[in-house]
């Protein structure tokens, strides 16, 4: 999972404002992307369902490394695209903050991290699937692992830049502490990548129409069939 599980007050007011502004910029960009083309009620309903499933899955704690969870944002990115996927990521963070799963002030920083996951997974999946003609499992696995590894680095960067409020440690010491968490995140990212690969293959077999937009280029130049 890639989520800054710091609660309110962990960042100083300055950095809360900075990351909130960055996130607001990204969400505005997502809204512009969505506004450019007609978004049908069906797409909105599917994106909302992605949000609620993402949030529900978010709450399932897996008892390894002291308790981790998957967040499936790469999968949401692949299914909903970078525009609606970014909005879904923001809403998952809002619902999570409401129940104490990360602070309200952390929504900005968390959204930046999750938008990275959504956008990177969407474009990597699309690239690998259409350009390199890999099957859905490999494309989903690759997209999720790349996205989650980058977001783990983004978490270390965000906490390293912002520092922890009231801590007397230097930024280098804070980064050293966060690297341990990033390593765990990347390890879980590989697991989530495998899960994402299986889920994308499963959806591709049962409901290939749900992947049509992401694999849009593949309609003209078909990607190899599953298992080919």
């Amino acid at each position: 999972m890639a989520h800054i599980h710091l609660e309110d007050g962990a960042f100083s007011p300055f950095w809360v404002i900075v990351w909130s502004l960055v996130a607001a910029g990204l969400v505005t960009l997502a809204l512009i992307i969505i506004g450019r083309k007609e978004t049908s009620p069906r797409k909105l309903a599917i994106a909302a369902m992605c949000t609620s499933v993402g949030f529900a899955v978010f709450q399932v704690s897996i008892p390894i490394f002291g308790g981790i969870h998957l967040n499936l944002t790469p999968l949401i990115g692949i299914l909903a695209g970078p525009g609606l996927g970014s909005l879904a990521a923001l809403l998952i963070n809002v619902f999570s903050a409401a129940v104490g799963h990360g602070g309200w002030g952390m929504i900005g920083a968390n959204t930046v991290v999750n938008v990275v996951e959504v956008a990177v997974s969407y474009y990597v999946y699309r690239l690998v699937r259409t350009r390199f003609k890999l099957d859905r499992f490999a494309s989903g696995l690759g997209a999720a692992v790349v996205a989650l590894s980058l977001s783990a680095v983004a978490i270390v960067a965000i906490v390293g830049i912002s520092g922890i409020q009231d801590s007397e440690q230097t930024k280098e010491e804070i980064v050293a502490n966060m690297v341990v968490i990033a390593v765990v995140n990347i390890a879980v990212g590989v697991l989530e990548g495998v899960v994402t690969g299986y889920v994308v293959s499963f959806i591709g077999r049962v409901r290939p129409d749900l992947l049509r937009d992401t694999e849009g280029v593949a309609e003209k130049d078909p990607a190899p069939a599953e298992g080919a």
Partner: peptide
């Protein structure tokens, strides 16, 4: 991994089908 995939895959597929019915 297969366990999670089947749990989350089913959750997503059911969610999509429900979302389409609702929309």
């Amino acid at each position: 991994s297969r366990l999670f995939a089947s749990i989350f895959g089913h959750a997503f597929i059911h969610a999509f089908e429900r979302a389409e019915r609702i929309s």
